[in-house]
Write a protein that binds this DNA or RNA. Structure first.
Lengths: 301, 301
DNA sequence: GATTCGTTTTGTCCTAGACAAATAGGACGT
DNA sequence: ACGTCCTATTTGTCTAGGACAAAACGAATC
């Protein structure tokens, strides 16, 4: 049995490194060095793909490719997250409970996780459930993933199950009639939806009329949707994984093509290090979203 | 106010045409011809982006780019779907009801749509709801979209609302304990999830243990997840929008890296024109999925 | 410790050529 | 009229190497 080999498109799919980057690294750093097929096209052995995935993960934690590629394989696996100005959460009873929930995911016990979360939802109520359970849990999952404690598919399982809980809870709420009409979505390439769902839950609780459009809307479509739905506000979410450098240009462009009277709210972990621009409201936290809602109602009153 | 202009990455995002294709068309057909900024980089005016979006839509319907680009703008908008070997559905009472549901989406009345669908679910029961309502509705939406009757954001709204209904219905089912353990997901680039949810609903109804991992899993992760969850079956979905040419290579590769004893079920509209390969089961229809389930149980008995 | 300023690193864009897979269209046979 | 084979065209993706701007670093300064 020959080890399967990947063409450059497959490697891009599986690692998230663009073809341009893969070729550039080969030229510059001498890694990866794929075999060539009869047409002279690159064939990456599984081993190199595995290394690339590891490198990508460490890069997402703030390491630089030049260094990583020069590092021998054994040291790579031992590398810790670099930009961890993260303070350890005190081991409160609360933190322990969250850890237990994540342990269920790690054991791949979907049923038990769902049940435990349902209980918390019932106990805390939707607002506190979102703010005190889902939000910190999501943050923890990000940290676990950074530390290499979660596999991709474990993160996916967590996301999928949690999405279901939130959607279910939102569906149980009465359709909001008083607040602003808020259109929730994300730009292409941004597929994370948990943040949007958390905001939707909070806004819906406050009686706002939420229009969920899912993720990955082309900018022009967002603008059209805003007009068609006569939305008061377009709310976008950027996860920490989204390349920060692209966000300002995206927002400026969207602002240009959107109706002037429609508000633009931008939130999610990816916006933490962003500076505000005219015509849009930054919502680095869930609380900020609630405040923005109150402020909007103020101006309308 | 100057019209906003798009760099090549933005056009790729908004049209779904790769940078390579955009440059190639420019070289070969003389369209699009973007302006250049001070660095000599392409700046596409909004007008050309709009035309590209239209061309892309017609291409998805089977037209060829060479012809489309040569066609003057006025004729483009009038072009009908080309591969429409589609027979008009007879105007039964049933078809009328489906049209009414879609009309609600077209009116952007999310609340009324949800309510109407809830009623149908209660009336038909989950199995018939999936097979007689959601499946034909999804097909209709695809046709509407092909015919230019649906905007992207209307399709998104439909998808999002319908996803919620299905997930809600699935959550209400007891956790399956007897059937095979089925891991449901899709490959990277494939973000359509409705098909997966329909299958999940049917399998869960039959008592199978479904593990939903969401969409867009790298192949290596699918293999890992299959091992970790000790899945009996991995079920993948390809929508009609997925480039058919890439599917066989993907499946072969996945089959190679997956545990031999794990089954591979492949379904969705994108697999209709696919020929089977050893080690995998094609499920062109929802019925086929139920048959495959029965067959699997047969072999285990 | 914080801020500024050069230097290095890094990703993305550019041109232009080659080739193989997919499709169209014609010729042929039934 | 319909299906099948074959050839020509169309089309997307890959290749190579060069250029440049933005981000990140690190050193010197306040």
């Amino acid at each position: 049995m020959n080890t399967p080999s990947f063409n450059i498109a497959a490697v891009e799919r599986d690692t998230g490194l663009s073809k341009d980057v893969l070729r550039m690294w080969e030229r510059r750093y001498g890694f990866p060095v794929p075999d060539r097929d009869s047409n002279g096209e690159r064939c990456y052995p599984a081993e190199q793909v595995e290394r690339l995935r590891l490198i990508k993960r460490l890069m997402d934690q703030g390491h630089r490719p030049g260094k990583l590629i020069a590092t021998p394989a054994e040291e790579l696996t031992a590398l810790a997250p670099r930009r961890s100005a993260r303070r350890e959460p005190e081991p409160t009873a609360e933190a322990g409970e969250l850890a237990e929930l994540l342990a269920l995911i790690k054991q791949h016990d979907a049923g038990a996780y769902q049940q435990a979360m349902q209980q918390r939802l019932a106990r805390q109520g939707l607002q506190r459930f979102v703010q005190d359970t889902v939000a910190p849990l999501t943050r923890r999952v990000g940290e676990y993933w950074e530390d290499g404690n979660f596999e991709v598919f474990e993160e996916h399982l967590f996301t999928e199950l949690t999405k279901r809980l939130l959607r279910q809870a939102i569906a149980a709420l009465p359709g909001g009639q008083r607040g602003p009409r808020v259109l929730l979505t994300s730009v292409p390439e941004e597929q994370h939806v948990l943040g949007l769902l958390m905001v939707e839950a909070l806004l819906a609780l406050e009686g706002a009329e939420c229009i969920p459009l899912g993720t990955q809307m082309p900018l022009l479509e967002i603008a059209r949707a805003a007009s068609a739905h006569r939305a008061d506000i377009v709310a976008l979410s950027f996860s920490v994984a989204f390349p920060v450098r692209q966000i300002p240009a995206l927002l400026t462009q969207l602002r240009q093509i959107m109706p002037t009277e429609t508000g633009l709210w931008v939130g999610g972990g990816g916006t933490a290090r962003l500076t505000g621009q005219p015509g849009m409201t930054l919502l680095p936290t869930l609380d900020a979203a609630l405040q923005a809602l109150a402020a909007w109602r103020e101006t309308q009153a």
